[in-house]
């Protein structure tokens, strides 16, 4: 059972990391808590479902929806968030308003019934005596490889350095000739694209339903704070901590207590290390 529990924790960590990574990038660069990230994740999952049921191959649908979501990200940044560039609170309120709009679109488009994307692979496997679903193994592998590469790009690639520089200090970055506004837009494009990928992949293991992203986004915020606000590397670490803590507590504690464990982890981190596990007080992205 321990093996199954640890794997369940890794799976939870993977979906939390998938949901949180794009959110962390947007916050790091724009300093906007984009609550609409979850709604965009939900919308993307439905769009992938729509394409797949129309005969598209799964990965083709993921790529197409990622492009669409990135386009939505550009529009949102240019026409909404850029207009409140110096008013983070206004950005926050806009993002909350977007949740209502996107959720309504989903409700009108697909109704209340949960939908299911086909599993990427069927069946289970036995690992050290524990029975583990193969599709979940694949989700964990995709999350580790995909987000690992994304993290590598952010730390090593030239555009990643621009993101980090802008996140660190926007005015200083502008003085160095970095096109800050374009970097903001790029951050939103990457964030929205990652929401789309997350929605499509999570939808293969959990039901695609109206509240999918909204439920995940709360955990994503916990993950970001635990890992270190604005640090994508910390987000991955935070996801691992929260996911494993949640799975272990569900398996070995009364559920009523287990539900409080992620929040307890959050409180302990805030009290003992307010910058998060991996963050410094100044680090961004």
């Amino acid at each position: 059972m321990l093996v199954e529990t640890i794997f369940a924790g890794l799976f939870l960590a993977s979906i939390y990391a998938l949901a949180a990574f794009g959110l962390a990038i947007v916050y790091g660069v724009l300093h906007v808590l984009n609550f609409a990230h979850g709604a965009l994740l939900t919308l993307s999952a439905y769009l992938v479902f729509q394409l797949v049921t129309s005969g598209w191959p799964f990965w083709g649908a993921i790529i197409a929806v990622t492009v669409v979501a990135a386009g939505i990200g550009v529009l949102l940044e240019l026409f909404l968030f850029r207009r409140v560039i110096d008013r983070p609170l206004s950005g926050l309120i806009i993002s909350i308003g977007l949740i209502g709009i996107i959720d309504s679109l989903v409700a009108v488009g697909w109704g209340p019934d949960p939908r299911a994307l086909p599993r990427m692979v069927d069946g289970s496997m036995t690992v050290f005596g524990g029975i583990i679903a193969k599709d979940r193994v694949l989700v964990v592998v995709i999350a580790i490889v995909g987000l690992g590469l994304a993290q590598l790009a952010i730390t090593r690639a030239p555009w990643g350095k621009l993101l980090r520089a802008t996140a660190e200090d926007r005015e200083a970055a502008a003085m160095q000739g970095i096109p800050v506004l374009r970097v903001r837009t790029a951050a939103f494009v990457v964030g929205a694209g990652l929401a789309a990928v997350a929605g499509g992949i999570i939808g293969t293991t959990l039901p695609v339903e109206p509240g999918l992203g909204d439920n995940l986004i709360l955990k994503a915020f916990i993950v970001i704070i635990v890992g270190g606000v604005g640090s994508t590397g910390g987000t991955l670490l935070g996801a691992a901590v929260v996911g494993l803590a949640e799975a272990l507590s569900i398996s070995y504690m009364p559920t009523s207590t287990a539900q409080l464990v992620p929040l307890a982890v959050l409180i302990v981190i805030l009290l003992t290390r307010p910058q998060g596990i991996a963050g410094t007080l100044t680090e961004r992205v």
Partner: peptide, 20 residues
């Protein structure tokens, strides 16, 4: 006999414990 948060959709940890 266990309870779960109503927004739970990942039941794998419960199934694992229940199977035991």
């Amino acid at each position: 006999s266990e309870r779960f948060a109503p927004d739970t959709r990942d039941f794998a940890p419960y199934i694992s414990a229940m199977r035991g």
